[in-house]
Measured scan of single mutants.
Amino acid sequence: HNLTITQGKLFFHYNPKLCLSEIHKMEEVSGTKGRQERNDIALKTNGDQASCENELLKFSYIRTSFDKILLRWEPYWPPDFRDLLGFMLFYKEAPYQNVTEFDGQDACGSNSWTVVDIDPPLRSNDPKSQNHPGWLMRGLKPWTQYAIFVKTLVTFSDERRTYGAKSDIIYVQTDATNPSVPLDPISVSNSSSQIILKWKPPSDPNGNITHYLVFWERQAEDSELFELDYCLKGLKLPSRTWSPPFESEDSQKHNQSEYEDSAGECCSCPKTDSQILKELEESSFRKTFEDYLHNVVFVPRKTSSGTGAEDPRPSRKRRSLGDVGNVTVAVPTVAAFPNTSSTSVPTSPEEHRPFEKVVNKESLVISGLRHFTGYRIELQACNQDTPEERCSVAAYVSARTMPEAKADDIVGPVTHEIFENNVVHLMWQEPKEPNGLIVLYEVSYRRYGDEELHLCVSRKHFALERGCRLRGLSPGNYSVRIRATSLAGNGSWTEPTYFYVTDYLDVPSNIA
Protein backbone atom coordinates (compact mmCIF):
# COMPACT_ATOMS: atom_id res chain seq x y z
CA HIS A 1 0.00 0.00 0.00
CA ASN A 2 1.14 3.52 -0.75
CA LEU A 3 1.27 5.87 2.23
CA THR A 4 1.71 9.61 1.81
CA ILE A 5 1.66 12.14 4.64
CA THR A 6 1.14 15.51 2.98
CA GLN A 7 1.27 17.51 6.19
CA GLY A 8 2.65 16.77 9.63
CA LYS A 9 5.65 14.79 10.72
CA LEU A 10 6.71 11.54 12.47
CA PHE A 11 7.20 11.13 16.19
CA PHE A 12 8.99 7.99 17.56
CA HIS A 13 9.93 7.50 21.20
CA TYR A 14 10.35 4.50 23.55
CA ASN A 15 10.45 1.72 20.97
CA PRO A 16 13.30 -0.45 22.33
CA LYS A 17 12.78 -3.23 19.77
CA LEU A 18 12.39 -0.92 16.74
CA CYS A 19 15.62 -0.24 14.88
CA LEU A 20 16.34 3.26 13.63
CA SER A 21 16.87 1.90 10.14
CA GLU A 22 13.21 0.88 10.02
CA ILE A 23 12.16 4.38 11.16
CA HIS A 24 14.27 5.94 8.43
CA LYS A 25 12.56 3.67 5.89
CA MET A 26 9.25 4.96 7.17
CA GLU A 27 10.43 8.51 6.51
CA GLU A 28 11.25 7.59 2.93
CA VAL A 29 7.98 5.86 2.05
CA SER A 30 5.77 8.44 3.76
CA GLY A 31 7.45 11.46 2.23
CA THR A 32 8.22 13.10 5.57
CA LYS A 33 11.97 13.03 5.36
CA GLY A 34 13.45 16.34 6.45
CA ARG A 35 10.38 17.53 8.36
CA GLN A 36 11.32 15.97 11.70
CA GLU A 37 13.23 17.93 14.23
CA ARG A 38 16.17 16.44 16.16
CA ASN A 39 14.09 15.35 19.16
CA ASP A 40 11.13 13.93 17.21
CA ILE A 41 12.96 10.64 16.66
CA ALA A 42 14.73 9.67 19.89
CA LEU A 43 18.13 8.10 19.33
CA LYS A 44 18.42 6.60 22.82
CA THR A 45 14.96 5.05 23.30
CA ASN A 46 14.43 3.54 19.85
CA GLY A 47 16.18 0.25 19.14
CA ASP A 48 18.21 0.34 22.33
CA GLN A 49 17.22 -3.30 23.11
CA ALA A 50 17.41 -4.61 19.56
CA SER A 51 20.23 -5.96 17.46
CA CYS A 52 20.04 -3.72 14.45
CA GLU A 53 22.24 -5.13 11.72
CA ASN A 54 23.32 -3.62 8.49
CA GLU A 55 25.85 -6.23 7.31
CA LEU A 56 25.40 -9.82 6.15
CA LEU A 57 27.13 -12.68 7.96
CA LYS A 58 28.01 -15.67 5.81
CA PHE A 59 28.63 -19.21 7.02
CA SER A 60 32.06 -20.48 6.04
CA TYR A 61 31.94 -24.09 7.29
CA ILE A 62 29.13 -26.57 7.98
CA ARG A 63 29.63 -30.17 9.06
CA THR A 64 26.96 -32.59 10.27
CA SER A 65 26.63 -35.86 12.14
CA PHE A 66 23.51 -37.68 13.28
CA ASP A 67 23.16 -35.57 16.46
CA LYS A 68 25.51 -32.61 15.95
CA ILE A 69 26.06 -29.68 13.60
CA LEU A 70 29.36 -27.78 13.53
CA LEU A 71 29.07 -24.22 12.25
CA ARG A 72 31.60 -21.50 11.50
CA TRP A 73 30.98 -18.08 10.00
CA GLU A 74 33.04 -15.21 8.71
CA PRO A 75 34.57 -12.95 11.37
CA TYR A 76 32.92 -9.64 12.09
CA TRP A 77 34.30 -6.73 14.11
CA PRO A 78 32.62 -3.31 14.49
CA PRO A 79 34.66 -0.10 14.13
CA ASP A 80 35.31 -0.25 17.84
CA PHE A 81 35.92 -3.97 18.42
CA ARG A 82 35.10 -3.51 22.11
CA ASP A 83 31.44 -3.00 21.16
CA LEU A 84 31.13 -6.66 20.05
CA LEU A 85 29.79 -8.61 23.04
CA GLY A 86 29.31 -11.85 21.13
CA PHE A 87 26.98 -13.69 18.79
CA MET A 88 23.49 -15.09 19.17
CA LEU A 89 22.81 -18.38 17.38
CA PHE A 90 19.15 -19.17 16.68
CA TYR A 91 17.93 -22.61 15.61
CA LYS A 92 14.81 -24.76 15.61
CA GLU A 93 13.34 -27.77 13.83
CA ALA A 94 11.98 -26.86 10.41
CA PRO A 95 10.24 -29.60 8.40
CA TYR A 96 9.66 -27.08 5.61
CA GLN A 97 11.87 -24.29 4.33
CA ASN A 98 9.40 -21.48 5.00
CA VAL A 99 10.64 -20.20 8.36
CA THR A 100 10.96 -16.51 9.23
CA GLU A 101 12.82 -14.87 12.06
CA PHE A 102 9.62 -13.77 13.75
CA ASP A 103 7.72 -17.08 13.76
CA GLY A 104 5.99 -17.74 17.06
CA GLN A 105 6.82 -14.36 18.54
CA ASP A 106 4.43 -12.99 21.14
CA ALA A 107 3.91 -9.66 22.88
CA CYS A 108 6.29 -10.62 25.68
CA GLY A 109 9.20 -11.03 23.30
CA SER A 110 9.47 -14.82 23.45
CA ASN A 111 9.54 -16.90 20.29
CA SER A 112 9.96 -20.46 19.06
CA TRP A 113 13.72 -20.29 18.52
CA THR A 114 16.39 -21.85 20.70
CA VAL A 115 19.04 -19.20 21.39
CA VAL A 116 22.71 -19.78 22.21
CA ASP A 117 24.97 -16.94 23.37
CA ILE A 118 28.49 -17.29 21.96
CA ASP A 119 31.55 -15.34 23.08
CA PRO A 120 33.55 -13.57 20.37
CA PRO A 121 36.84 -15.20 19.35
CA LEU A 122 40.22 -13.79 20.25
CA ARG A 123 40.99 -10.83 18.05
CA SER A 124 44.15 -11.01 15.98
CA ASN A 125 46.32 -8.01 15.24
CA ASP A 126 46.46 -9.07 11.62
CA PRO A 127 43.12 -8.23 9.94
CA LYS A 128 43.72 -10.92 7.29
CA SER A 129 44.07 -13.79 9.77
CA GLN A 130 41.09 -13.35 12.05
CA ASN A 131 39.66 -16.45 13.71
CA HIS A 132 36.30 -17.61 12.43
CA PRO A 133 33.74 -17.82 15.24
CA GLY A 134 31.63 -20.95 15.44
CA TRP A 135 29.58 -23.31 17.55
CA LEU A 136 29.00 -27.05 17.91
CA MET A 137 25.27 -27.76 18.22
CA ARG A 138 24.69 -30.90 20.30
CA GLY A 139 21.78 -33.10 21.27
CA LEU A 140 19.98 -32.80 17.95
CA LYS A 141 17.58 -35.30 16.45
CA PRO A 142 18.86 -37.57 13.68
CA TRP A 143 17.63 -37.03 10.13
CA THR A 144 15.95 -33.75 11.07
CA GLN A 145 16.08 -30.42 9.23
CA TYR A 146 16.94 -27.35 11.28
CA ALA A 147 16.57 -23.67 10.46
CA ILE A 148 19.60 -21.68 11.65
CA PHE A 149 20.74 -18.08 11.63
CA VAL A 150 23.22 -16.03 13.63
CA LYS A 151 23.51 -12.35 14.45
CA THR A 152 25.81 -10.12 16.45
CA LEU A 153 25.28 -8.71 19.91
CA VAL A 154 26.78 -5.22 20.26
CA THR A 155 26.80 -2.55 22.95
CA PHE A 156 24.97 0.74 22.91
CA SER A 157 26.78 3.39 20.86
CA ASP A 158 26.77 6.95 22.08
CA GLU A 159 27.12 8.18 18.54
CA ARG A 160 24.07 6.04 17.64
CA ARG A 161 25.85 4.56 14.71
CA THR A 162 23.75 1.57 13.72
CA TYR A 163 26.01 -1.35 13.03
CA GLY A 164 25.87 -5.10 13.42
CA ALA A 165 25.54 -8.16 11.22
CA LYS A 166 23.10 -11.00 10.69
CA SER A 167 23.07 -14.06 8.47
CA ASP A 168 20.32 -15.35 6.27
CA ILE A 169 18.31 -18.31 7.53
CA ILE A 170 19.91 -21.53 6.34
CA TYR A 171 18.54 -25.08 6.50
CA VAL A 172 20.76 -27.95 7.60
CA GLN A 173 19.72 -31.58 8.00
CA THR A 174 21.41 -33.94 10.43
CA ASP A 175 22.66 -37.30 9.22
CA ALA A 176 20.79 -40.57 9.46
CA THR A 177 21.65 -43.20 12.05
CA ASN A 178 20.40 -46.58 13.17
CA PRO A 179 16.62 -46.66 13.52
CA SER A 180 14.84 -47.77 16.66
CA VAL A 181 13.39 -51.27 16.86
CA PRO A 182 10.29 -52.18 14.84
CA LEU A 183 7.15 -51.95 16.95
CA ASP A 184 4.57 -54.56 17.92
CA PRO A 185 5.82 -57.64 16.04
CA ILE A 186 3.13 -60.33 15.90
CA SER A 187 3.68 -63.87 14.64
CA VAL A 188 1.03 -66.47 13.94
CA SER A 189 0.87 -69.78 12.12
CA ASN A 190 -1.72 -70.47 9.47
CA SER A 191 -0.49 -73.94 8.48
CA SER A 192 1.94 -76.63 9.52
CA SER A 193 4.72 -75.12 7.40
CA GLN A 194 4.14 -71.35 7.50
CA ILE A 195 4.38 -68.47 9.96
CA ILE A 196 2.94 -65.04 9.21
CA LEU A 197 4.86 -62.12 10.69
CA LYS A 198 3.49 -58.58 10.96
CA TRP A 199 4.94 -55.47 12.58
CA LYS A 200 4.78 -51.68 12.68
CA PRO A 201 7.49 -49.24 11.57
CA PRO A 202 9.95 -47.90 14.17
CA SER A 203 8.89 -44.89 16.19
CA ASP A 204 12.22 -43.24 15.31
CA PRO A 205 13.24 -44.24 11.77
CA ASN A 206 16.24 -41.84 11.92
CA GLY A 207 16.32 -41.92 8.14
CA ASN A 208 14.30 -43.40 5.29
CA ILE A 209 13.49 -47.04 6.04
CA THR A 210 14.72 -48.96 3.01
CA HIS A 211 14.08 -52.54 4.10
CA TYR A 212 13.66 -54.97 6.96
CA LEU A 213 15.71 -58.06 7.75
CA VAL A 214 13.90 -61.09 9.14
CA PHE A 215 15.91 -64.00 10.54
CA TRP A 216 14.38 -67.18 11.88
CA GLU A 217 15.89 -70.01 13.84
CA ARG A 218 14.46 -73.35 14.87
CA GLN A 219 14.31 -73.77 18.63
CA ALA A 220 15.14 -76.99 20.45
CA GLU A 221 12.52 -78.41 22.77
CA ASP A 222 13.07 -78.16 26.52
CA SER A 223 15.66 -80.61 27.80
CA GLU A 224 13.30 -81.86 30.51
CA LEU A 225 11.07 -83.35 27.81
CA PHE A 226 13.85 -85.80 27.00
CA GLU A 227 14.68 -86.62 30.62
CA LEU A 228 11.39 -86.97 32.50
CA ASP A 229 9.32 -90.15 32.57
CA TYR A 230 5.78 -89.00 31.90
CA CYS A 231 4.42 -92.44 32.68
CA LEU A 232 4.99 -91.81 36.39
CA LYS A 233 1.80 -91.25 38.33
CA GLY A 234 1.04 -87.61 39.04
CA LEU A 235 3.28 -86.22 36.30
CA LYS A 236 1.24 -84.08 33.96
CA LEU A 237 1.69 -84.61 30.25
CA PRO A 238 3.45 -81.68 28.54
CA SER A 239 1.67 -79.83 25.79
CA ARG A 240 2.52 -77.04 23.41
CA THR A 241 0.15 -74.82 21.48
CA TRP A 242 0.75 -73.24 18.13
CA SER A 243 0.37 -69.53 17.50
CA PRO A 244 -3.31 -68.72 16.83
CA PRO A 245 -4.31 -66.91 13.65
CA PHE A 246 -4.81 -63.16 13.49
CA GLU A 247 -8.07 -61.65 14.59
CA SER A 248 -10.22 -60.10 11.91
CA GLU A 249 -9.22 -56.71 10.65
CA ASP A 250 -12.37 -55.14 12.06
CA SER A 251 -11.55 -56.27 15.57
CA GLN A 252 -8.11 -54.73 15.31
CA LYS A 253 -9.29 -51.22 14.48
CA HIS A 254 -8.18 -48.66 17.01
CA ASN A 255 -10.48 -46.24 18.75
CA GLN A 256 -13.46 -48.58 18.45
CA SER A 257 -16.13 -49.29 21.02
CA GLU A 258 -15.95 -52.65 22.77
CA TYR A 259 -19.70 -53.02 22.69
CA GLU A 260 -21.70 -53.58 19.56
CA ASP A 261 -25.27 -52.64 19.01
CA SER A 262 -27.41 -55.73 18.66
CA ALA A 263 -29.34 -54.02 15.87
CA GLY A 264 -26.25 -53.73 13.67
CA GLU A 265 -23.01 -51.84 13.36
CA CYS A 266 -22.10 -49.20 15.89
CA CYS A 267 -19.96 -46.13 15.56
CA SER A 268 -16.66 -45.86 17.37
CA CYS A 269 -16.45 -43.85 20.55
CA PRO A 270 -13.97 -40.98 20.34
CA LYS A 271 -11.14 -41.01 22.83
CA THR A 272 -11.17 -38.46 25.61
CA ASP A 273 -8.34 -35.99 26.15
CA SER A 274 -7.18 -37.94 29.19
CA GLN A 275 -7.01 -41.18 27.18
CA ILE A 276 -5.02 -39.50 24.41
CA LEU A 277 -2.66 -37.92 26.96
CA LYS A 278 -2.18 -41.27 28.67
CA GLU A 279 -1.34 -42.96 25.36
CA LEU A 280 1.19 -40.24 24.55
CA GLU A 281 2.82 -40.66 27.97
CA GLU A 282 2.98 -44.44 27.51
CA SER A 283 4.49 -44.02 24.05
CA SER A 284 7.09 -41.58 25.38
CA PHE A 285 7.96 -43.91 28.24
CA ARG A 286 8.30 -46.86 25.88
CA LYS A 287 10.67 -44.94 23.61
CA THR A 288 12.77 -43.82 26.58
CA PHE A 289 12.89 -47.34 27.96
CA GLU A 290 13.88 -48.77 24.56
CA ASP A 291 16.69 -46.25 24.27
CA TYR A 292 17.87 -47.22 27.76
CA LEU A 293 17.91 -50.90 26.85
CA HIS A 294 19.79 -50.23 23.63
CA ASN A 295 22.44 -48.17 25.40
CA VAL A 296 22.87 -50.30 28.53
CA VAL A 297 21.88 -53.88 27.83
CA PHE A 298 23.06 -54.43 24.27
CA VAL A 299 26.82 -54.37 23.80
CA PRO A 300 28.01 -53.83 20.21
CA ARG A 301 30.11 -56.59 18.69
CA LYS A 302 33.77 -55.88 18.17
CA THR A 303 34.67 -55.69 14.53
CA SER A 304 37.85 -57.16 13.20
CA SER A 305 40.92 -54.96 13.47
CA GLY A 306 44.00 -54.79 11.34
CA THR A 307 45.69 -57.51 13.42
CA GLY A 308 43.98 -60.30 11.50
CA ALA A 309 41.47 -61.20 14.21
CA GLU A 310 38.27 -62.60 12.75
CA ASP A 311 34.83 -61.22 13.37
CA PRO A 312 33.01 -63.84 15.48
CA ARG A 313 29.69 -63.20 13.75
CA PRO A 314 28.57 -65.83 11.24
CA SER A 315 28.36 -64.53 7.72
CA ARG A 316 24.92 -63.98 6.28
CA LYS A 317 23.90 -66.29 3.49
CA ARG A 318 20.64 -66.01 1.60
CA ARG A 319 18.66 -69.21 1.28
CA SER A 320 15.58 -70.06 -0.64
CA LEU A 321 12.49 -70.58 1.45
CA GLY A 322 12.33 -74.19 0.32
CA ASP A 323 15.48 -75.00 2.27
CA VAL A 324 14.23 -73.64 5.57
CA GLY A 325 12.56 -76.83 6.74
CA ASN A 326 15.87 -78.55 7.47
CA VAL A 327 17.63 -75.71 9.17
CA THR A 328 18.87 -77.61 12.19
CA VAL A 329 21.06 -80.65 12.68
CA ALA A 330 19.15 -83.76 13.74
CA VAL A 331 20.79 -86.03 16.31
CA PRO A 332 19.36 -89.40 17.39
CA THR A 333 18.16 -89.64 20.98
CA VAL A 334 20.10 -92.85 21.63
CA ALA A 335 22.96 -93.62 19.28
CA ALA A 336 22.69 -97.40 19.70
CA PHE A 337 19.20 -97.58 18.22
CA PRO A 338 18.94 -96.07 14.75
CA ASN A 339 15.16 -96.46 14.52
CA THR A 340 14.46 -93.73 17.08
CA SER A 341 13.32 -90.38 15.71
CA SER A 342 15.59 -87.38 15.35
CA THR A 343 13.53 -84.92 17.37
CA SER A 344 16.37 -83.62 19.51
CA VAL A 345 17.41 -80.42 17.80
CA PRO A 346 20.69 -78.95 19.05
CA THR A 347 21.50 -76.12 16.69
CA SER A 348 25.06 -75.72 15.54
CA PRO A 349 26.38 -72.25 16.40
CA GLU A 350 28.33 -72.16 13.13
CA GLU A 351 25.24 -72.71 11.02
CA HIS A 352 24.03 -69.86 8.85
CA ARG A 353 20.59 -68.66 9.79
CA PRO A 354 18.11 -68.24 6.96
CA PHE A 355 16.83 -64.72 6.45
CA GLU A 356 14.66 -62.70 4.14
CA LYS A 357 14.92 -59.08 3.03
CA VAL A 358 11.55 -57.31 3.09
CA VAL A 359 11.06 -54.12 1.06
CA ASN A 360 8.10 -51.71 1.04
CA LYS A 361 5.89 -53.66 3.42
CA GLU A 362 5.56 -54.61 7.09
CA SER A 363 4.69 -58.30 6.80
CA LEU A 364 6.23 -61.57 5.69
CA VAL A 365 5.07 -65.14 5.19
CA ILE A 366 7.85 -67.54 6.20
CA SER A 367 7.37 -70.84 4.38
CA GLY A 368 9.06 -74.21 4.26
CA LEU A 369 9.10 -74.68 8.04
CA ARG A 370 8.87 -77.91 10.01
CA HIS A 371 5.48 -78.77 11.42
CA PHE A 372 4.71 -78.08 15.09
CA THR A 373 8.12 -76.59 15.74
CA GLY A 374 9.00 -73.49 17.71
CA TYR A 375 10.90 -70.73 15.92
CA ARG A 376 12.57 -67.62 17.24
CA ILE A 377 12.19 -64.76 14.79
CA GLU A 378 14.48 -61.74 14.75
CA LEU A 379 13.35 -58.52 13.08
CA GLN A 380 15.52 -55.51 12.22
CA ALA A 381 14.69 -52.22 10.51
CA CYS A 382 17.30 -50.74 8.17
CA ASN A 383 17.54 -47.28 6.62
CA GLN A 384 20.60 -47.91 4.47
CA ASP A 385 21.55 -50.77 2.19
CA THR A 386 24.90 -49.75 0.73
CA PRO A 387 27.82 -49.41 1.21
CA GLU A 388 26.94 -51.26 4.42
CA GLU A 389 23.67 -51.96 6.14
CA ARG A 390 22.60 -49.64 8.93
CA CYS A 391 20.03 -51.50 10.98
CA SER A 392 18.32 -51.32 14.33
CA VAL A 393 18.66 -53.52 17.35
CA ALA A 394 16.61 -56.66 16.80
CA ALA A 395 13.07 -57.19 18.02
CA TYR A 396 12.34 -60.81 18.92
CA VAL A 397 9.16 -62.84 18.71
CA SER A 398 8.47 -66.56 18.93
CA ALA A 399 5.96 -68.72 17.13
CA ARG A 400 5.14 -72.40 16.67
CA THR A 401 3.79 -73.90 13.47
CA MET A 402 0.56 -75.87 13.44
CA PRO A 403 0.62 -79.67 13.86
CA GLU A 404 0.66 -81.95 10.86
CA ALA A 405 -2.20 -84.40 10.55
CA LYS A 406 -1.15 -88.05 10.96
CA ALA A 407 2.44 -87.07 11.76
CA ASP A 408 2.16 -88.89 15.11
CA ASP A 409 0.80 -92.11 13.60
CA ILE A 410 2.98 -95.20 13.91
CA VAL A 411 3.96 -96.34 10.44
CA GLY A 412 4.51 -99.99 9.67
CA PRO A 413 3.42 -103.18 11.40
CA VAL A 414 3.67 -103.91 15.10
CA THR A 415 5.76 -107.07 15.42
CA HIS A 416 6.14 -109.37 18.38
CA GLU A 417 8.45 -112.03 19.71
CA ILE A 418 7.42 -114.56 22.36
CA PHE A 419 9.94 -115.67 24.98
CA GLU A 420 9.83 -118.11 27.83
CA ASN A 421 7.84 -117.41 30.97
CA ASN A 422 5.07 -115.93 28.82
CA VAL A 423 6.99 -112.75 27.97
CA VAL A 424 6.07 -111.01 24.72
CA HIS A 425 8.36 -108.39 23.20
CA LEU A 426 6.38 -105.87 21.12
CA MET A 427 8.31 -103.79 18.57
CA TRP A 428 7.33 -100.87 16.34
CA GLN A 429 8.84 -97.93 14.52
CA GLU A 430 8.68 -94.45 16.05
CA PRO A 431 7.08 -91.79 13.80
CA LYS A 432 9.83 -90.28 11.68
CA GLU A 433 8.60 -86.67 11.78
CA PRO A 434 6.35 -86.31 14.83
CA ASN A 435 4.75 -83.07 15.98
CA GLY A 436 7.49 -81.81 18.24
CA LEU A 437 8.60 -85.05 19.83
CA ILE A 438 7.04 -88.26 21.14
CA VAL A 439 6.82 -88.22 24.94
CA LEU A 440 5.21 -91.64 25.50
CA TYR A 441 3.36 -94.57 23.93
CA GLU A 442 0.09 -96.12 24.99
CA VAL A 443 -0.18 -99.91 24.59
CA SER A 444 -3.70 -101.36 24.80
CA TYR A 445 -3.94 -105.16 24.90
CA ARG A 446 -6.55 -107.72 25.89
CA ARG A 447 -6.99 -111.44 26.01
CA TYR A 448 -10.02 -112.80 24.24
CA GLY A 449 -12.96 -112.59 26.64
CA ASP A 450 -11.17 -110.32 29.17
CA GLU A 451 -11.16 -106.57 29.75
CA GLU A 452 -8.73 -104.33 27.92
CA LEU A 453 -5.52 -103.44 29.77
CA HIS A 454 -3.29 -100.40 29.24
CA LEU A 455 0.45 -99.98 29.53
CA CYS A 456 2.37 -96.68 29.39
CA VAL A 457 5.78 -96.79 27.69
CA SER A 458 8.05 -93.83 28.29
CA ARG A 459 10.37 -92.35 25.71
CA LYS A 460 13.47 -93.69 27.46
CA HIS A 461 11.97 -97.14 27.89
CA PHE A 462 11.10 -97.34 24.21
CA ALA A 463 14.64 -96.33 23.24
CA LEU A 464 16.10 -99.14 25.38
CA GLU A 465 13.69 -101.89 24.33
CA ARG A 466 12.87 -100.80 20.79
CA GLY A 467 9.35 -101.22 22.05
CA CYS A 468 8.15 -102.85 25.28
CA ARG A 469 7.75 -106.25 26.95
CA LEU A 470 4.51 -107.69 28.25
CA ARG A 471 5.17 -110.01 31.18
CA GLY A 472 3.11 -112.52 33.12
CA LEU A 473 0.58 -113.10 30.38
CA SER A 474 -1.94 -115.85 30.80
CA PRO A 475 -2.23 -118.36 27.96
CA GLY A 476 -4.69 -117.38 25.25
CA ASN A 477 -5.34 -115.27 22.18
CA TYR A 478 -4.35 -111.59 22.46
CA SER A 479 -4.88 -108.44 20.45
CA VAL A 480 -2.78 -105.30 20.87
CA ARG A 481 -3.01 -101.69 19.64
CA ILE A 482 -0.49 -98.89 20.09
CA ARG A 483 -0.61 -95.13 19.71
CA ALA A 484 1.95 -92.39 20.22
CA THR A 485 1.49 -89.20 22.22
CA SER A 486 3.42 -86.12 21.11
CA LEU A 487 3.50 -82.51 22.26
CA ALA A 488 0.50 -81.90 20.02
CA GLY A 489 -1.59 -84.72 21.50
CA ASN A 490 -2.42 -88.30 20.65
CA GLY A 491 -1.85 -89.99 17.34
CA SER A 492 -4.07 -92.68 15.84
CA TRP A 493 -4.27 -96.24 17.11
CA THR A 494 -2.55 -98.86 15.02
CA GLU A 495 -4.46 -101.71 13.49
CA PRO A 496 -4.83 -104.61 15.99
CA THR A 497 -2.04 -107.15 16.03
CA TYR A 498 -2.82 -110.69 17.20
CA PHE A 499 -0.66 -113.30 18.90
CA TYR A 500 -1.16 -116.47 20.91
CA VAL A 501 0.50 -117.24 24.23
CA THR A 502 0.83 -120.90 25.16
CA ASP A 503 1.17 -122.37 28.63
CA TYR A 504 4.91 -122.74 29.00
CA LEU A 505 4.35 -125.70 31.42
CA ASP A 506 2.75 -127.68 28.56
CA VAL A 507 5.68 -127.21 26.21
CA PRO A 508 6.88 -130.72 25.10
CA SER A 509 10.33 -131.70 26.30
CA ASN A 510 13.10 -133.01 24.07
CA ILE A 511 14.43 -135.26 26.83
CA ALA A 512 13.74 -138.97 26.17
Rank of each mutant, 00 (worst) to 15 (best):
217 E>Y: 14
206 N>Y: 01
313 R>V: 10
268 S>E: 14
466 R>S: 07
340 T>S: 11
218 R>I: 07
473 L>P: 03
384 Q>L: 04
242 W>F: 03
227 E>W: 14
265 E>R: 06
354 P>E: 05
300 P>E: 06
339 N>L: 11
318 R>Y: 11
385 D>F: 07
455 L>D: 15
293 L>Q: 03
485 T>W: 13
280 L>T: 05
472 G>I: 08
328 T>S: 12
387 P>G: 15
317 K>Y: 08
431 P>R: 02
357 K>M: 13
506 D>F: 09
216 W>L: 12
367 S>M: 14
276 I>F: 13
421 N>K: 12
255 N>H: 15
235 L>V: 10
384 Q>K: 02
372 F>M: 05
280 L>R: 10
325 G>C: 03
497 T>M: 05
501 V>G: 01
371 H>P: 07
234 G>L: 05
243 S>L: 12
458 S>N: 07
442 E>M: 03
501 V>P: 02
414 V>R: 03
230 Y>Q: 12
292 Y>V: 02
333 T>L: 12
422 N>P: 02
477 N>S: 08
497 T>H: 05
203 S>E: 11
337 F>S: 12
248 S>R: 12
348 S>T: 06
288 T>D: 02
419 F>M: 15
332 P>C: 10
456 C>Y: 01
351 E>Y: 02
489 G>L: 02
443 V>I: 07
259 Y>I: 04
465 E>T: 11
494 T>E: 01
206 N>K: 03
236 K>G: 05
383 N>V: 08
206 N>G: 05
472 G>T: 07
257 S>A: 06
312 P>L: 09
407 A>G: 04
424 V>Y: 14
506 D>T: 07
412 G>Q: 12
492 S>P: 11
260 E>K: 03
470 L>Q: 01
215 F>H: 10
268 S>A: 15
257 S>T: 07
297 V>Q: 09
268 S>V: 08
415 T>M: 15
223 S>W: 09
247 E>Y: 10
370 R>S: 13
237 L>R: 08
487 L>I: 08
482 I>T: 03
504 Y>P: 11
318 R>P: 13
378 E>S: 08
266 C>P: 03
425 H>Q: 13
256 Q>F: 15
271 K>C: 03
435 N>P: 01
296 V>H: 07
219 Q>C: 07
483 R>N: 14
319 R>T: 13
466 R>I: 07
250 D>H: 11
499 F>K: 01
506 D>Y: 10
402 M>Y: 06
353 R>E: 11
504 Y>N: 07
283 S>T: 11
394 A>E: 10
259 Y>P: 10
284 S>V: 13
206 N>F: 03
399 A>K: 03
404 E>Y: 14
246 F>L: 12
470 L>M: 10
501 V>S: 06
266 C>V: 08
476 G>L: 00
461 H>R: 10
467 G>E: 04
234 G>F: 11
456 C>G: 01
296 V>C: 15
242 W>K: 08
253 K>S: 04
414 V>T: 06
277 L>Q: 03
282 E>G: 05
391 C>V: 01
499 F>Y: 02
297 V>S: 02
322 G>C: 12
318 R>D: 11
307 T>D: 15
451 E>S: 15
249 E>V: 10
360 N>D: 02
506 D>R: 13
203 S>V: 13
304 S>T: 10
303 T>E: 11
455 L>R: 10
341 S>N: 09
443 V>T: 05
492 S>L: 10
275 Q>L: 06
256 Q>S: 04
220 A>I: 11
247 E>G: 12
290 E>R: 02
292 Y>C: 00
211 H>R: 11
310 E>I: 04
378 E>W: 04
485 T>S: 05
438 I>Y: 03
411 V>C: 15
209 I>L: 10
323 D>S: 07
467 G>M: 12
352 H>R: 09
306 G>K: 10
266 C>D: 03
321 L>C: 04
434 P>G: 04
374 G>S: 07
273 D>I: 14
483 R>W: 01
390 R>Y: 02
327 V>N: 07
498 Y>W: 09
386 T>M: 14
482 I>N: 00
219 Q>L: 11
436 G>W: 02
264 G>W: 08
323 D>K: 05
502 T>N: 05
268 S>L: 11
237 L>S: 06
501 V>R: 05
302 K>I: 09
419 F>C: 13
320 S>P: 05
217 E>P: 14
217 E>D: 05
388 E>I: 15
287 K>F: 02
229 D>E: 08
465 E>P: 03
391 C>K: 05
343 T>P: 12
469 R>F: 11
247 E>N: 04
237 L>F: 11
389 E>S: 08
441 Y>W: 00
309 A>K: 10
211 H>Q: 10
223 S>V: 07
373 T>P: 00
451 E>K: 04
274 S>T: 10
304 S>R: 05
317 K>C: 12
305 S>V: 10
375 Y>S: 01
313 R>C: 14
297 V>T: 02
303 T>K: 12
359 V>Y: 09
470 L>Y: 01
230 Y>P: 04
445 Y>A: 14
437 L>S: 00
438 I>E: 02
494 T>I: 09
310 E>P: 08
442 E>Y: 02
354 P>Q: 11
332 P>N: 05
340 T>I: 14
238 P>M: 04
438 I>A: 12
205 P>R: 05
246 F>C: 15
250 D>G: 05
421 N>E: 15
315 S>D: 10
233 K>N: 05
320 S>Q: 10
240 R>S: 08
245 P>M: 11
502 T>Q: 06
296 V>S: 14
283 S>P: 01
376 R>P: 02
257 S>K: 12
467 G>Q: 05
334 V>W: 11
298 F>R: 03
238 P>A: 03
227 E>A: 10
222 D>F: 06
303 T>Y: 08
460 K>Q: 07
294 H>L: 15
303 T>I: 15
468 C>H: 07
305 S>T: 13
230 Y>R: 09
